[in-house]
Design a protein around this nucleic acid. Structure first.
Length: 645
RNA sequence: GCCACUUUAGCUCAGCUGGUAGAGCAACUGAUUUGUAAUCAGUAGGUCGUUGGUUCGAUUCCGACAAGUGGCUCCA
């Protein structure tokens, strides 16, 4: 007999060799129907795998993350079975579960696969699922596994096998399909009731662009049709808040073939948002002791040789233009220009920390396949600043920058982000990273401490630092799930030296300053793209391109509407009148769709009482009030930069 | 840059197997003067992304290019 302990502390005895499924069944039939996998002594196991020792056991239902992964992994096998039956001779690489489903990488030879094939594959999968084929686990000696895949001529699985230890190799078979697989899997294919193959993509073998490109098929599956439908509805909803869709609907930005890919033209509405953000940044930076500067969009080759960006970064820069025998580059970063401003006048320790800020325009020749709406572009306006300071001032300055981030995030109600602390790898000192082992360790410890003190959750990643120092990136996700760095805060103990930046210390020594690169509001492009999705287009009043729309019931009331408009304009409110001869219902509908935060309805009653009827976007009629009172309300909301009313 | 797909009116989208295109909304004109998410009627609007080819004939089939979309790689 073996002793099984459950998460609630209960213990039961079972015969050795019993399975998690048997145990579930012994508790209740209902549980046995719902359970998908089990955690046995901390490892996720197949339900059908016999247990021979005393064990901690947790049964996993669909709600558990590991169960979902197992379920999706099994669906990947089901899909592979369908693919192999429809396209005999294809070779499989790996088919893991991901955050929202699964994929399988396949070498289709000289074939290709299209949307129609996906629909046919789904039918085939449905057919195979109905056979209720068990996922059968088999431990195989390495020699046998090698022989099996040599016979198949499957170089991919042979490659996988090379790194596997003899004695730990398992095959899983369901129906006609056998795969090298660590497992675990759900009991049988019949549990996969609903699925959708979502898209086809290319993926380099082992993620290396020098390797062959395999075909990756993505899909998602659920234990019932209802859950699949809910998931698809969720996707539809997400699409509605996609910044590319909202950007068009709300007249925020446009792009044009004649201008070029990744080059954003901000329309009047978008420009208002930009100006409000800059106003916020300028106020905040003024208060924090920054000086504003303005620098040109181009610079000579020599500067980028000094900075080390050339030739290393040349691929990401627009090619140079030649004038009078000199090469000029569009700037891909503002730091070198700022360093030159630092160097323009002799500095003393009394001048530090020296903080200079600019909404700098930079151009990056991003790979065409990487461009993405506002989020990844080739011309961007960066909320850039550089802080030059002594080693002693460094921590305080870094902290202040971090606090500035948090202040911004509070204003915008940004709470779904991941702070990522990017560290160096000691073995790459002198290659990928400047060779200053002691400085690295000190600054990394300092940066980590700042994060800990601020109480923000963060993740540490090795080998992701900039070549000149560690950094903190703020990672966010677009509605379609793509990850982006929204903001960045970087430590630099290298460029000061490259640019021979110096200041005189109190004891009259020349010292090189340390530098902080920071961009809490990232770039206008990415930040506004993010905000549109974050607010689903319903920008807070202070950011809304149009804050108030006056809706007269009929054009008899236009004079009064004009008078109200004049008062609001005088109070600095962005206001327009809908003077079309439409019914009020129509005017409201159109204004709602444009997501204008306030609508003021004016009819006979309002004119007589000297009032306006306020309607809040998305919330309906809010009652009548005198114009002066409304001006007070909205002015306060704007001044406070309130996220909601 | 790589793989796949897409590109028809300002927008959203129809258009069977090749015979030069249609709807709704928007726009414009007129009527209507309206009370909290779509008033009615009429008019105008397209070299079917660009460019080669096949064909008597191409929006439709094939190729190239461009842009976009989903991924991959990249994002100092």
């Amino acid at each position: 007999m073996i002793k099984i302990s459950f998460p609630d502390g209960a213990q039961r005895e079972y015969a050795a060799g019993t399975t998690a499924y048997d145990i579930a069944k012994s508790i209740s039939e209902g549980l046995a129907r719902k359970v998908l996998a089990a955690v046995v002594n901390g490892q996720v196991w197949d339900l059908s795998r016999p247990i021979y020792e005393d064990a901690q056991l947790k049964l996993l239902g669909w709600e558990e993350k590991e169960a979902k992964s197992t379920f999706w992994h099994s669906t990947a096998h089901l899909m592979a079975e369908a693919i192999e039956s429809m396209f005999p001779g294809v070779k499989f690489w790996v088919g893991p579960p991901v955050d929202n489903g699964f994929y399988y990488d396949i070498d289709l030879g000289d074939r290709s696969i299209n949307e129609e094939d996906l629909r046919r594959l789904e039918l085939k999968m449905a057919e195979l699922a109905k056979q209720n084929n068990a996922f059968v686990r088999k431990e195989v000696p390495k020699a046998e596994a090698l022989a099996y895949f040599s016979d198949k001529g499957d170089q991919y699985k042979l490659d996988l096998l090379q790194n596997l230890e003899d004695g730990k190799i398992t095959f899983y078979t369901q129906g006609e399909f056998t795969d090298l697989c660590r497992g675990p899997h759900i009991p049988h294919t019949g549990l996969i009731k609903a699925f959708r193959l979502t898209n086809i993509a290319g993926a380099y073998w082992k993620g290396d662009e020098k390797n062959k490109m395999l075909t990756r098929v993505y899909g998602v599956s659920f234990p019932s049709q209802k859950e699949l439908d809910e998931y698809l509805t969720l996707l539809e909803e997400a699409k509605k808040r996609d910044h590319r869709k909202l950007g068009k609907e709300l007249g925020i930005y446009t792009m044009d073939d004649d201008v070029g890919p990744g080059l954003i033209m901000w329309m009047p509405n978008g420009t208002i948002i930009i100006e409000e953000l800059e106003k916020l940044a300028k106020e905040t930076e003024e208060e924090a002791g920054y000086h504003r500067v303005v620098t040109p969009h181009i610079a000579k080759e020599s500067m980028y040789l000094t900075s080390g960006h050339l030739p290393y970064y040349a691929d990401s820069m627009y090619p140079p233009m030649e004038l009078e025998g000199e090469k000029y580059y569009l700037k891909a970063m503002n730091c070198p220009h700022h360093h030159k401003i630092f160097a323009a006048e002799p500095k003393s320790y009394r001048d530090l920390p020296y903080r200079i800020a600019e909404y700098g325009t930079v151009y990056r020749y991003e790979q065409s396949g990487e461009l993405f709406g506002l989020m990844r572009v080739r011309c961007m306006h960066m909320n850039d600043a550089h802080i030059y300071c002594s080693k002693e001032q460094f921590e305080q300055e870094f902290r202040a920058v971090n606090d500035m981030y948090l202040k911004y995030f509070r204003i915008f109600g940004i709470d779904k982000y991941v702070m990522r602390l990017s560290l160096h790898s000691p073995e790459k000192l002198g290659k990928k990273y400047v060779d200053e082992p002691q400085l690295w360790l000190e600054t990394e410890a300092m940066v980590r401490q700042v994060l800990i003190d601020s109480g923000i959750p963060y993740v540490e990643v090795q080998d992701e630092a900039a070549f000149y120092g560690p950094k903190i990136d703020v990672q966010i996700y677009s509605v379609i799930g793509r990850e982006f760095t929204l903001a960045t805060n970087q430590v630099d103990f290298s460029q000061g030296r490259s640019f021979k930046l110096q200041y005189q210390t109190a004891d009259n020594q020349s010292e090189t300053p340390l530098i902080i690169h920071r961009a809490p509001l990232g770039t206008h492009e990415r930040f506004i793209g993010f905000l549109l999705e974050h607010y689903a287009g319903k920008l807070p009043v202070w950011l809304a391109p149009q804050q108030v729309k006056i809706l007269p019931i009929s054009d008899k009331f236009l004079d009064y509407a004009e008078a109200v408009k004049k008062q609001l304009k005088a109070a600095g409110v962005r206001v327009t009148i809908d003077d079309r001869s439409e019914k009020i219902g129509k005017k409201i509908r159109d204004t709602e769709l444009l997501k204008v935060p306030y609508m003021l309805v004016i009819g006979e009653k309002e004119v007589n009482e000297g009032k306006i009827s306020v309607r809040r976007q998305g919330k309906g009629d809010a009652g009548a009030m005198p114009v002066a009172e409304f001006i007070q309300v909205i002015s306060r909301e704007i001044a406070n930069r309130s996220s909601s009313e």
